[in-house]
């Protein structure tokens, strides 16, 4: 499903966020990219979502080589992905419901069909009672759940999450972990970048350790 081969990402200024990384994730797998802040986990996710382009190496997602993908094709690639952001990236000028509707509007869903799917997604994350609420009125955990609802509403094949439990206390984090498990169980490939060890213990995914931009094979073997 996702394959990185000898991928290096060097930012302007010379900082190498990812160094010669090679990894492969199968369809339907749940994988955690584990490592300290600044280890390069976020950059790996951005490379997979075509938000960043690799300086060298090959990134293949869903059978498509992102290096040879034209800029016009990228939106269609992203429609197969669900992105959960650490800072949620919700739109604060519209309701929870409209936020979840956004991916469906982009993809041209019929309004009635879209509304049904959006309610289903909100129900799944336990926010159906808040559909008219503006994101500012939601708690941090609720905002994160709303972000997840938006990421899964169009049933993507791959769910990418960057520190989804970053600012949450343990109880909220556990709730969100269960959501990811549920999506994985219905067949979605789930890739989560995190340093939350408790979450990893709870979900028992395949672990890929990242340390200063390198895929740490030793740690992976130990896990």
């Amino acid at each position: 499903m996702i394959a990185l081969t000898n991928v290096t990402k060097r930012y302007p200024g010379g900082h190498e966020a990812v160094k010669n990384a090679t990894l492969s994730i199968e369809r339907g797998e749940m994988v955690f990219l584990m490592g300290h802040s600044g280890a390069g986990k976020s950059t790996l996710l951005k490379l997979i979502a075509a938000i960043e382009r690799p300086t060298s190496g090959k990134v293949v997602v869903n059978g498509q080589n992102l290096g040879s993908l034209r800029a016009r094709a990228i939106p269609y690639l992203r429609r197969n992905l669900g992105l959960v952001f650490q800072d949620h990236k919700l739109l604060f000028d519209r309701s929870a419901f409209e936020n979840v509707m956004l991916p469906l509007n982009i993809q041209g869903y019929d309004r009635r069909d879209a509304a049904r799917r959006a309610r289903a997604a909100l129900d799944k994350v336990g926010l159906l009672g808040h559909e008219k609420a503006l994101p500012v009125t939601l708690s941090c955990g609720e905002q994160q759940r709303l972000c997840i609802a938006r990421a899964v509403v169009h049933r993507p094949a791959v769910l990418l999450a960057d520190e989804p439990t970053g600012n949450l206390d343990a109880a909220y984090a556990a709730e969100i972990g269960e959501l990811f498990r549920a999506f994985n169980q219905v067949g979605a490939t789930v890739v989560i970048a995190t340093h939350d060890v408790q979450l990893a213990e709870r979900l028992a995914p395949r672990l890929i350790a990242i340390a200063s931009g390198r895929v740490d094979t030793l740690a992976a073997a130990a896990a």
Binding site: I51, R72, P75, L77, R79, L81, L83, K89, L91, I106
Partner: peptide, 16 residues
């Protein structure tokens, strides 16, 4: 700006 950024990240085309 934010709306443009978010919609781009979740698959909006330039046309959209």
């Amino acid at each position: 700006r934010e709306e443009i950024e978010v919609t781009t990240l979740i698959g909006a085309t330039d046309g959209f």
